[in-house]
């Protein structure tokens, strides 16, 4: 029997899911709670600091990974959820959700390279 090509999607899905589960809560805490409430100094998320971070190759890589992998996770999860809800238009759904994830990935690359 031929091997499935599903790992191409499932790889970023699983990696994105792991990131989303382990790192996203911390990011939400820092950006959504700690800085607005003054637990961390407001300048820690200032524009200049953020641009300086995105200006380094390591910073670009981290931002790219955190934007693109969870996008693939969300896309694949949405496709499976739609399937589980009984919608049988898998090819169209796959095209839409993976198209969105691909668009976000390309946008992230272009935006990061322009900084």
């Amino acid at each position: 029997m031929a091997r499935s090509h599903k790992p191409i999607i499932w790889g970023p899905f699983a990696a994105g899911g792991t990131l989303a589960a382990l790192i996203m809560p911390v990011l939400i805490f820092v950006t959504g709670v700690a800085v607005p409430l003054g637990i961390l100094p407001p300048e820690s998320l200032s524009y200049h600091r953020a641009v300086a971070f995105a200006g380094t190759w390591l910073g670009k890589l981290i931002l790219f990974v955190f934007v693109s992998l969870p996008a693939w996770h969300a896309a694949h999860r949405a496709r499976i959820t739609v399937h589980d809800l009984g919608v049988r238009l898998d090819n169209i759904v796959a095209l839409v959700v993976y198209g969105l994830a691909a668009t976000l990935t390309i946008t992230a690359v272009v935006a990061l390279l322009r900084i």
């Binding site: 029997m1 031929a2 091997r3 499935s4 599903k6 499932w10 499976i80 399937h83 589980d84």
Partner: peptide, 17 residues
């Protein structure tokens, strides 16, 4: 076993319900 396991009708049909 991987010939069957990694085929489209193997593990990939599971959506982890």
């Amino acid at each position: 076993r991987q010939e069957i396991v990694a085929s489209p009708e193997g593990v990939w049909e599971c959506s982890f319900v």
